[in-house]
Design a protein around this nucleic acid. Structure first.
Lengths: 418, 418
DNA sequence: CTGCTTGTTTCATGACCTGAACGGACGCCG
DNA sequence: CGGCGTCCGTTCAGGTCATGAAACAAGCAG
């Protein structure tokens, strides 16, 4: 139903994309298996794979014996074909990491930033410095860096300038994409941190093998990444998945967004600690920062703590049930630092609470799992952005100019002359 | 990212689909305009359109003068190329309607059914009788009927048997698709009524020209149809969009689904009337059935009625805001008989309540509109199912056997013999 | 070394889109 | 009323692509 034409070149790109994606995701594979699972003819597989090998994108990786006959050669994406850089713009620091195509980290850089109201220009400078630093540190050719993915905790418009709105950073309409592109020739990709972490969890973590999932992220705030049929759900302007500010207690607690009864006010770490303080006659949980205080609360044996945590599990279950009813996923992945901590201790109770609130059938069709990557995988998640592009395009697009322009000056005559 | 190969035939089908969809949706168009908007070359447009004209699927419809030169011929889908039958399985009646490809109704049939626990076999019989009846009534060749779309108010699995789970009908696991296919050779399509009504609203109603929308349906119960990038969002097992049973008041009123605090218990007509009865010292609104009672309540000037309706607007606003935060649509369409009645009187207040509960940015990017088709368009919505298939395939697939099999017996030798 | 099995590549074929040339229809103007 | 310019629509040669069948390659057993 898409209003886009299809040309014969799109076909080749689409098929290259299918093959490359499968080789990359499902490890070393033989040409035979590729033909089997993609329904492409062996001839085409050979043709396309041969092209990718010639480009250096794919390489042979040993062979495995086949009963009696010629052994099958395994194929993998060449790890050193190119490199990916991912960056995490957090509230307190900018972290930049370089990966090869096997997604092994090769270099890392980190820059502290002011906790509140960080100047976008400073952040952009840190990001560009970090980019140079990790390239230098890893000793790779800058031309081999396929892309620079940046994850920020806000919504990112899908325009050329990649305008960012990030409440926690105090940014409203920052054209971060344009700012970064002015400082580097490497392709820049910017997206919301929850969405990139969700993608990473889908490819390498608890979402493997699933096409419909919701990755729930509970930290100080609360967010979600919805994956529909293998691709992130964005909505009209890329701000879909704002689960934290859905109303779950009509007229309830005030949330930091200003509304009443948001889910975040009940199951976000800040909201939980605040509720504990109220239940504990104004005495907060011990701990310098939020994370240690939350850990303390989890370990606490007091009556107030137990009540607050029980309630939290209930609210979280209702919130997850809402997601299940609305999105009908195959899997729900519970992540974020607070979500992980809660889940490690209360997963069965969370499942039970969800079952109470969700419709029977969609609940039965889904499974609720803990995340596998942990909260520090944001930079890796950001690096999935250029990787996704590489896979979608079936490799780096061949320079299309070279094929057409030589014939341009006198197309007809030259063609005749042959 | 789809693990599906692309062949040279898919390309042609895809391009036919693009052209056909555009011709059908955007009325008579010239070849030039088609080339413009689809980015196909004029040569290909001519080629593909010529094929469709030869098949009788597309026809010329007058011409429009172009400044000075040869006038451009307009093209449209031939209304009499084929016919679509749509059926609505309601709680009290089965309604069957036949349309031509211009979506004008040509015949209608209706059968009352038992209000509760209707036997699936009876319903299937009514549906098949209705199918024959409207074909007979319209005087149409049965072979020209392209498909039979059936809308039911429950979830429909996307399997060959089209297994239906419909709480309101008392059905759990009814293979309605298999039952109907056993009684007719016409292709059968079954889907949830909210989804088909949503599709109709997208094509002919308040969703025209929009790619991301949520169609909200408030009747006795509450549902929603999410359209993402032009296609209905289904989730893993087609039960996505169960908005009515999301929790909006944690620990609140008991819903007929058994849970506490579901949205449906607050903004469904049944829930509203029940809340009014409680607020009105046990005296219900006057009226034999739900619909007249609800109309009475809307016209009522009493204090209890005003409070209940004000609260309803608030809950509805919060519920719509949740959809906006989660799905980030371009448009929200308010429909269903109760939703339409509420919206006609309270649309500004509903918008205001939604604005209070939604995040500022996604709210600013969306518009909330009333539906245009009314609640009786379910049969037409069902007829969109075979139409969607026709558009997706770019017409009726040509028999592929005829093209290949003659060469089969001795492909090599025969080829040489020429 | 030969036959056998299995994996991979080559080749002729048919299907497709495209740019450019060609043919057609209409209004305008001398 | 016939030539002319302006578009519209179609035809054709050229290039790209996937595919099935046949050919080639690489191991193993006898």
């Amino acid at each position: 139903m898409d209003a886009r034409r299809t040309t014969v070149r799109d076909m080749r790109r689409a098929n290259r994309s299918v093959l490359l994606t499968r080789i990359w995701l499902d490890g070393p594979l033989s040409r035979h298996e590729l033909g089997q699972t993609t329904a492409l003819s062996l001839a085409s597989v050979s043709n396309l794979v041969g092209e990718m090998i010639a480009e250096g994108l794919v390489e042979e990786a040993g062979s495995v014996e086949s009963d009696g006959g010629r052994p099958r050669v395994l194929l993998r994406v060449a790890p050193a074909y190119g490199y990916l850089v991912g960056a995490d713009v957090g509230e307190t620091r900018v972290q930049v990491e370089l990966f090869d195509l096997a997604m092994t980290a090769r270099a890392k850089a980190e820059y502290p930033i002011a906790a509140t109201g960080s100047d976008p220009r400073d952040v952009a400078t840190h990001l560009l410095h970090g980019l140079d630093a990790v390239i230098e540190q890893a000793g790779v050719d800058p031309a081999a860096v396929l892309g620079f993915g940046v994850a920020v905790s806000g919504t990112v418009e899908r325009t050329a300038d990649a305008v960012v709105h990030a409440q926690t950073l105090g940014w409203d309409g920052v054209p971060l994409g344009a700012m970064l592109r002015a400082g580097t020739g490497i392709p820049v990709h910017i997206d919301n941190g929850a969405k990139t972490l969700g993608q990473a969890e889908m490819w390498f973590g608890a979402g493997r093998g699933v096409r419909h999932a919701v990755i729930v992220l509970v930290g100080s705030g609360v967010g979600a990444c919805v994956v529909a049929d293998g691709v992130g759900y964005r909505g009209a302007h890329s701000s879909a998945g704002e689960w934290g500010h859905t109303t779950i207690v009509y007229g309830g607690r005030r949330c930091r967004c200003g509304n009443l009864g948001c889910l975040e006010a009940y199951v976000g770490a800040e909201g939980i600690l605040d509720r504990f303080r109220q239940a504990n006659r104004g005495r907060p949980a011990a701990g310098e920062d939020e994370e240690t205080a939350f850990g303390e609360l989890l370990r606490s044996t007091g009556r107030a703590a137990a009540t607050v945590l029980d309630d939290t599990v209930g609210y979280l279950g209702a919130g997850v049930a809402n997601l299940i009813n609305l999105f009908n996923p195959e899997r729900v992945v519970l992540g974020g630092w607070a979500g992980l901590a809660l889940g490690e201790r209360y997963l069965p109770q969370i499942r039970a609470a969800t079952a109470r609130h969700a419709l029977r059938q969609p609940y039965a069709q889904t499974s609720i799992e803990l995340c596998r990557l942990g909260p520090d995988a944001v930079a890796m998640g950001a690096a999935t952005l250029p990787m996704a592009r590489l896979l979608r395009d079936g490799g780096v697009p061949r320079d299309p100019v070279a094929r057409v322009s030589p014939a341009r000056p006198a197309p007809r005559t030259r063609a005749r002359a042959r």
